[in-house]
């Protein structure tokens, strides 16, 4: 029978272990296809508890070296990811890809230097322009997890098209719906059939809209993605799927958002009234949906209001 002392010791151990856990990312790479590993983040918002581990990253071990797909929210995350990669393969890091310019996808770049860091041209420009502001914001949101993190602007640009690397036939695409004009990278690995739409697709988590050039553009991108032949898909946030479930969920949410903002503008609702509109049951289980809906009103409603104004 446990004595009081045993209980106290157990409690202290628990306290100590959770304290030391506090600043260690518990990354668990999972192999989903030949040479292809994914690291699934939580579907939460940035916090001092999760250190920004809210994003999916992945890596592909080719015979020429490892291709890292997104480096995470902080230097510490990048280091943890690199550590996991070295536990799995002896191959060196060949290159790091930044799918787009949002802070949860590129702040781990530092850990992989001097490996080349690649992104679309628009992404390179956006990280150069906004990186410092994002860094300040990230320090505020997740605190000490960011210690030592600095902006590393992608060193090379990536051109859309087919590219053979180390036994894999990759196809890169430039989309626009989530991050702006030709600022969303998509990768289709024809060799394994894994599609990486990055943040064009969110699964079981509400989509974020700060840089969308328009929900209709995003919806068109999703229609194009749906035509692609793939066996598995890794959304930017949320679990791996082997069908169109995640894509259709993102599409349905964005279509609802578009119609809701359009309808609200036609009725003359104010922003604060729109923010309080009910979320339909179909989306009420999406992580962060109320917060993201409020944010989206701030990002987008003005454009819908403009459309019904008379000059």
């Amino acid at each position: 029978m446990p004595t009081l002392i045993t209980w106290l010791l157990a409690l202290m151990c628990a306290a100590l272990s959770s304290a030391s856990w506090a600043l260690n990312y518990d990354l668990q790479p999972r192999q989903i296809a030949e040479n292809t590993w994914v690291v699934i983040g939580t579907t939460e918002d940035f916090s001092r508890q999760n250190g920004g581990d809210i994003v999916n990253s992945a890596f592909i071990v080719t015979s020429e070296g490892v291709i890292v797909l997104d480096s995470g929210p902080s230097r510490r995350y990048g280091e943890a990811l690199k550590q996991k990669i070295t536990e799995i393969t002896d191959q060196p890091i060949l290159k790091v890809i930044n799918s787009h310019h949002h802070p949860d996808h590129f702040f781990g770049n530092q850990a992989f230097l001097p490996a080349p860091i690649l992104s679309l041209e628009a992404t390179q420009r956006l990280i150069a322009e906004r990186g410092e502001t994002y860094a300040e914001n990230m320090y505020r949101l997740v605190g000490d997890w960011m210690r030592g993190t600095e902006v590393v602007v992608p060193t090379q640009t990536i051109q859309p098209g087919v590219e053979e690397i180390g036994g894999h036939r990759f196809e890169w695409f430039a989309f626009s719906g989530h991050s702006g004009e030709r600022a969303d990278l998509v990768l289709l690995d024809h060799t394994t059939g894994v599609l990486f739409p990055f943040d064009l697709v969110f699964y079981q988590r509400a989509a974020t809209t700060p840089d969308t050039p328009g929900l209709e553009i995003w919806l068109q991108d999703l229609e194009r993605l749906a035509q692609m032949e793939f066996r598995q898909m890794l959304p930017g946030h949320g679990e791996v799927v082997s069908d169109l479930t995640a894509l259709k969920q993102t599409s349905a949410y964005l279509a609802w958002l578009h119609e809701t903002l359009q309808g609200a503008a036609a009725e003359g609702l104010s922003s604060s009234e729109v923010m309080r509109l009910p979320i339909p049951q179909a989306f009420s289980e999406l992580a962060q949906v109320r917060q993201e809906f409020e944010r989206s009103v701030t990002h987008l409603y003005r454009h819908y209001e403009q459309a019904v104004f008379t000059q």
Partner: peptide, 16 residues
Amino acid sequence: VELPSFAEDSMQVPLG
């Protein structure tokens, strides 16, 4: 007094 829970854009906070 209606406000968003968080000011997404501190230069444009909707107040109702």
